[in-house]
Write a protein that binds this DNA or RNA. Sequence first.
DNA 1: AATCAAATTATGGGATTTTATGGTTTTCAA
DNA 2: TTGAAAACCATAAAATCCCATAATTTGATT
Lengths: 147, 147
Amino acid sequence: MSLFLSSYENRLDAKGRVSVPASFRTALNNEKFAGVVLYRSFTNNCIEGLSMSRMESLAAATDKMGVFDNALDDLSAMLFADARPLQFDVTGRIIIPADLLAHAGIGDTALFVGRGNSFQIWDPAAFRAAQNKSLENLRASRPNLVI
Amino acid sequence: MSLFLSSYENRLDAKGRVSVPASFRTALNNEKFAGVVLYRSFTNNCIEGLSMSRMESLAAATDKMGVFDNALDDLSAMLFADARPLQFDVTGRIIIPADLLAHAGIGDTALFVGRGNSFQIWDPAAFRAAQNKSLENLRASRPNLVI
DNA sequence: AATCAAATTATGGGATTTTATGGTTTTCAA
DNA sequence: TTGAAAACCATAAAATCCCATAATTTGATT
């Protein structure tokens, strides 16, 4: 398996440690960096997460675009400056930096949400609200995706 | 064979395990992931099922289109967040998560319904009711299917 | 067409492993 | 030396594996 799928609600302990869901870890288990990269979402009150190798391919992609695209320059500046590499401990936990937790409004419970090739970390209630919103949007726009 | 055809009614045991019908399993037997991906139907009180490779091609598609199609982005987000990868045990069983069972109103018997390239899982009675409803609709509208 | 044997499939329960979570000790740098 | 981070250890709950058995299908042979 190599996609981040499904959602998992895990608790932060007194030291701020959270288990990254086992299925996310297996999705990462032939990565050379045993951990994840987190950064603040630009669009939502949540944390974005991906593998180090995907971060590297992002770097490669922005390289190819050249130095004259200002928007992209801003984006990659933000992204790379903000990105936090976090290594798993022996039991597969990480400590999410306080400013990321604050940005996502996460208290003592974190919801890991699969997004295919990446994932997000949300405050459970905030995610449910956001998901209801996009379900409404979908019902209104009825995109025609063939699955 | 590679299509999901026909319907099969199987029992859930005390631990919630159900056999995926053998013919569905053979339809999946050159997949690298030995199992299925399930998610809540957006339109019916049932569970949708498909192969992991189909899920992966969806991930590839959303990658290519980037972040500019909001509707499709919403949809794939819903899908990936909701999708449950479930591996077969040695005898070809899976455990359907409790929230999916609740959404489909499934008690101790699950009806696997072939849909060609995908399948659905229903509560038997709920499926029969839905079938009658769509038969009524068909009689009323008489769509003209050209083969 | 009927019957029986063999293979496959569905189902059941106990044993084992993983996983999430908590706490304690050690290390290291400020 | 003191505080934070990392390493280490422990455990309950959940998921998975393993083996056994009942039911069904398939295929062969009358």
